[in-house]
Nucleic acid binder design. Sequence first.
DNA 1: TTGCTTTTGCAAATGGTTTGCAAATATTAT
DNA 2: ATAATATTTGCAAACCATTTGCAAAAGCAA
Lengths: 125, 125
Amino acid sequence: MRSTKARRDILDLFHNEDVPLSADYVYELLNGEYDRSTIYRNLKNFENNGKLRSIVFSDKITYFYKGSEHFHFIYCVKCKKFERFDLCYSESISKYITENLGYKVLGHTLYFEGICKNCQEEMKK
Amino acid sequence: MRSTKARRDILDLFHNEDVPLSADYVYELLNGEYDRSTIYRNLKNFENNGKLRSIVFSDKITYFYKGSEHFHFIYCVKCKKFERFDLCYSESISKYITENLGYKVLGHTLYFEGICKNCQEEMKK
DNA sequence: TTGCTTTTGCAAATGGTTTGCAAATATTAT
DNA sequence: ATAATATTTGCAAACCATTTGCAAAAGCAA
């Protein structure tokens, strides 16, 4: 895979980013400097070589995040923002699935949806 | 909400079904007797009144399942079938999110992906 | 059955994502 | 550096699950 300006710019966005980004949001963060197809293609490339991971929420949009760590998200259905949390019981569930159902587990997806603190305050007004 | 043949036929499919069904599969199971828009509209109706729940997998297709119970799924990426499992630690995670992040939790999605026993055998051949 | 409301089928629209292709850019050998 | 080769980009069109507008059909109460 060659190093191009588009790829460097896209990947840079994720370095200090803790929450998942959609292709469209990446496009906007880069001020439309690259075509959407370029963004989509490269996000997928990064996912294939492990630099990014992706998750699909109930809105059916793919969100990407750094592939180096393992964590999960809670999504506020009002303000549409994510927050990260690290608690995860996947290992014990994986064990259960492997031992009792015989699967070879490849991965899992876990996310919560709710209303964040700020939005709860907003709604009281 | 009125009782129509379409609604009765659609809902009947879920009574003895343990795994999630897509709108398209519902359409096929009913031999194309109803228009896809009818299927889509009614699945969404059922979800709104609690008769069904839905989950979106990484394929971005909405799958519906009986709303009466709470359970999760493991999906075989080879044979594309689901299997249900009931183990879930969502309550302790919910508690964590509520107490530490201040969210009001509305729901969660948890699924695993892997390769089922049969497909593992197949792959050995 | 009448009259009113909801539901259905059809066709067209939607929207995120993908793809074909020619032009532009990165890499490699000269 | 330069030319030769392979990859990547931008553009426009295609995809595909899902949604929507609208007129005809079906459910339901009186």
